[in-house]
Design a binder for these strands. Structure first.
Lengths: 298, 298
DNA sequence: TTCCTTCAATTCAATTTTGAATAGGATACA
DNA sequence: TGTATCCTATTCAAAATTGAATTGAAGGAA
């Protein structure tokens, strides 16, 4: 009879490529995994991985097992969501997955009232450009620039985040302020990566045109902010971030370069979880209150 | 982090109604299950069963978990089938699930050549009127009186099993032989249970009419055979069994009371398993060779 | 009632499983 | 070529898990 735990371990080995890596992930020792793998292989009577000096290499049968092991893990995740959904306790933690522009700083500052209201709740902000999988419980709540497609998620469109053209006062003093967008080609242009632009409501041809004129790019809003602040050039930058930086001046009388809707997303099953519910409602209200800042006309 | 083994245990508890019963099924001790349940409940933070003096009673959350645990078990069964399918070894065991009329005696005798050809294979005959679930690997091969509806199964219609009217020579000498079926009402009539008749190709109205006139019934073909042999009356009985009993005389010149097709069923995935394949092929050939006996005109 | 069986929980000794340390080999890089 | 880093397998003592035996309590049958 197969030990289900061994299948859990097997899955981790398959997904991490080596006993050592899987052991680190699972918080068990590498010898344990080595032995559990041997035990599982004894049970099924076939080798599942060939051990190499660089890690593990899956066999054909292992590959077939993997499909079922993943399937089992989905059920375990569903169970975990079920349990979290039951939790009506206002202490514990809530993990928020969000893009760096929001998560790295801005959101932290805006969460101060929440912290005061719910001192028992640990807030865990996971800044990720690759969206965490809420179904796998990689996060409880997500702020996304796109509508999630998965079922079992509740999603609400909140604010519209506009990007404007910004430069520092020093830069404009030195290089002169462009009077129209036509003059932009005479300046260094600072732009987020295409992967970020792709989630904005921008004509792809416009994205291409903008990309062509970029002098500095990053997927990190912090890096872009630094670039603008260091006077490297004129940047396309989220208005709500620029609003909190006195050094930045908006150009062209509030012209919007591009914009993206911010979606607030959570598990349907987690609605009944008090912590997550509290955070969800707080974020919803808070974002609504800052709609003007996001739009860039605050 | 949830231990997957605990979910396996949880499932067994749910399906067996008590720690003790589940422990017997799983070949572990009852204290172990008691502790594993406590550990799982600690993990999820909620009570899954209320312990009563008569066993376990599921809580609402336990009921929801159960769905996922069953789902996981399906995957484990799929894995087990995968592994068994890989097995090209001509030693080991094959379990055949079949109705009592075939399994209790007749099939055993017909398997002698198979035993001689494959001495390494243990044959395991599981006589069950409630059909074993092949997908759950309760058996490897099944002989059924109906076409299986599940996917992932291969099914082949083999022989047609006819039932005739039979009585012992002694009975006929004492009570006289009826000359037509109209005279049957003057005799005690021996009949299988409706659950067996329901799988035959008989007009339901005819089943009802037959049932009305029954004097002795059983779901056990052995019991029916005894009833006929003891001279209790005239019985509706499978021809291929009667053919091997010299005491029984067929009435009405081979009139068929009712008939049923015999289906040979196995897992699609088990086709590549040498043992199961060998047994499947043997049964198919053997049944074909005995078609006349099943039809009652051998 | 009394007896019998069944249940879950507890105790404690025996077993099993675990991880830290280590060995030994392969690879990448300087 | 040497060094550092990665891997898996092995050893052995410590820790965790297990089962046999037992307790106590409840239901069913006589």
């Amino acid at each position: 009879m197969i030990a289900w735990d061994d299948l859990k371990y097997f899955l981790a080995m398959a997904e991490n490529g080596s006993l050592s890596a899987a052991a680190r992930k699972l918080n068990v020792s590498q010898p344990t995994l080595s032995r559990r793998l041997t035990a599982l292989e004894d049970d099924v009577g076939v080798e599942l991985f060939s051990r190499t000096r660089t890690g593990l290499e899956m066999t054909a049968l292992g590959d077939q097992l993997l499909r079922h092991a993943r399937h089992m893990q989905d059920d375990v995740h569903a169970i975990e969501r079920l349990i979290t959904g039951q939790d009506t306790n206002l202490s514990g933690s809530v993990m928020i997955s969000c893009i760096e522009s929001v998560g790295a700083g801005w959101l932290v500052r805006k969460l101060k009232p929440f912290r005061a209201q719910y001192p028992g709740i640990t807030v865990d902000i996971k800044v990720d450009n690759a969206a965490s999988d809420l179904l796998r419980r990689e996060a409880d709540i997500a702020l996304r620039m796109f509508r999630p497609v998965q079922n079992d998620l509740v999603a609400k469109r909140t604010v519209t985040m506009n990007y404007g053209y910004y430069a520092t006062r020093d830069y404009l003093a030195e290089h002169g302020a462009p009077q129209s967008t036509k003059e932009l080609k005479d300046h260094s242009f600072i732009l987020p990566h295409d992967e970020i632009l792709a989630h904005t409501k921008t004509d792809p041809r416009r994205v291409y045109a903008l990309s062509q004129s970029a002098a500095f790019r990053s997927n990190s809003m912090l890096a872009l902010a630094s670039a603008v602040e260091e006077g490297i050039g004129i940047g396309a930058y989220p208005c709500m971030l620029a609003a909190e930086n006195d050094n930045l001046v908006r150009l062209f009388e509030g012209l919007t370069v591009f914009s993206a809707d911010i979606w607030l997303v959570a598990h349907a099953e987690l609605r009944r979880n008090a912590r997550i519910r509290a955070m969800y409602d707080y974020l919803s209200d808070m974002l609504h209150d800052h709609a003007a800042a996001f739009a860039g006309n605050g």
